[in-house]
Design a protein around this nucleic acid. Structure first.
Length: 206
DNA sequence: AGTATGATGGACT
DNA sequence: GTCCATCATACTA
C-alpha cells in the first residue's frame, strides 16, 4: 500500500524492471480523490540509445524525447495516431533514456469510473464495454485512467500517479515476445522485450 | 480467427 | 508530406 521507492526505477537492468512491474498496482486518483487502480499485466521495454524502436535511439534529444532523459521514476507520455496517449515509466539514471510502456492493466478499483470514461470517449453508445475491454491496451488504459499529455514529466513519487506493490508472479507465470507496432525497427523488431502474465484475460494480446 | 482500413493530429525531415 | 509504441469496425471465411 505504499509507493515504490526511487531505487526501484533506477535499477540498471531495464528488462528486469519490465518483468518486475508485472503484478504491481498503478494508481491515479480521480477528480474526487478516489483511487482508480489497475494491476499491470503487460509491459514493453525500450532500451534507449541502442534500441532502434525507442524514440530516444542514438540519444536523439528533442522536445518530445526530453522526458526520457530524466531520472528513473518519471512519467513519459506521448501522443500517437492522432488520438491516443501512451503511458510509460522512465527507468535508469539521468541521461539513460530507457522507458517501459505499460500496455495493459487488470481493472482493480473504481471500475465504473473506467467504464464511464471509456464510454464517454467512444462514438457509439452500443460499443461493448465488458471489464476485459476497459484497459486491455496502451491507448485504452490511458482513457480509463484519465491520463493525458499533462501527466508527462510527473514524478511517480508524487500524488498524481504512482505504482505500489501488488501481486508477485513467479518466472514460470511470465511470458515474453516481440514488441507490438514497431516493424520499422529492423533487427530490434525481433527482440523479445514485451512481457505479460500468462493466461491473463486483460492483456492486449496473448 | 484473420486481415484490411479509416479516424485524426503532432513530431519530425 | 510522411510516419506513427492504436483502436474499432467491416469485411472474408
Amino acid at each position: 500500500m505504499s509507493k515504490l521507492p526511487r531505487e526501484f526505477y533506477i535499477c540498471e537492468d531495464t528488462l528486469q524492471i519490465a518483468r518486475d512491474l508485472l503484478g504491481k498496482l498503478m494508481i491515479v486518483p480521480d477528480e474526487r480523490g478516489a483511487r482508480v487502480a489497475g494491476m499491470i499485466v503487460e509491459t514493453e521495454a525500450y532500451l534507449g540509445a541502442e534500441d532502434k524502436a525507442a524514440h530516444s535511439f542514438g540519444n536523439r534529444r528533442t522536445k518530445r524525447t526530453e522526458t526520457m532523459f530524466a531520472s528513473g521514476g518519471t512519467v513519459y507520455i506521448f501522443f500517437i495516431y492522432g488520438m491516443y496517449f501512451q503511458f510509460n515509466v522512465v527507468v535508469g539514471a539521468v541521461d539513460t533514456p530507457h522507458a517501459i510502456l505499460i500496455r495493459a492493466v487488470e481493472p482493480i478499483e473504481n471500475i465504473e469510473m473506467m467504464r464511464a470514461r471509456r464510454r464517454a470517449k467512444s462514438k457509439n453508445a452500443a460499443l461493448k464495454m465488458p471489464d476485459q475491454n476497459l484497459t486491455s491496451g496502451p491507448g485504452k488504459l490511458c482513457i480509463a485512467f484519465g491520463i493525458d499529455k499533462s501527466f508527462n514529466n510527473e514524478s511517480l513519487l508524487g500524488g498524481r500517479v504512482w505504482i505500489e506493490d501488488g501481486k508477485v508472479f513467479s518466472a514460470d507465470k511470465i511470458k515474453c515476445g516481440k514488441r507490438v507496432g514497431i516493424a520499422y525497427a529492423e533487427e530490434f523488431a525481433e527482440k523479445p522485450w514485451r512481457f505479460w502474465i500468462k493466461n491473463n484475460e486483460f492483456v492486449s494480446r496473448g
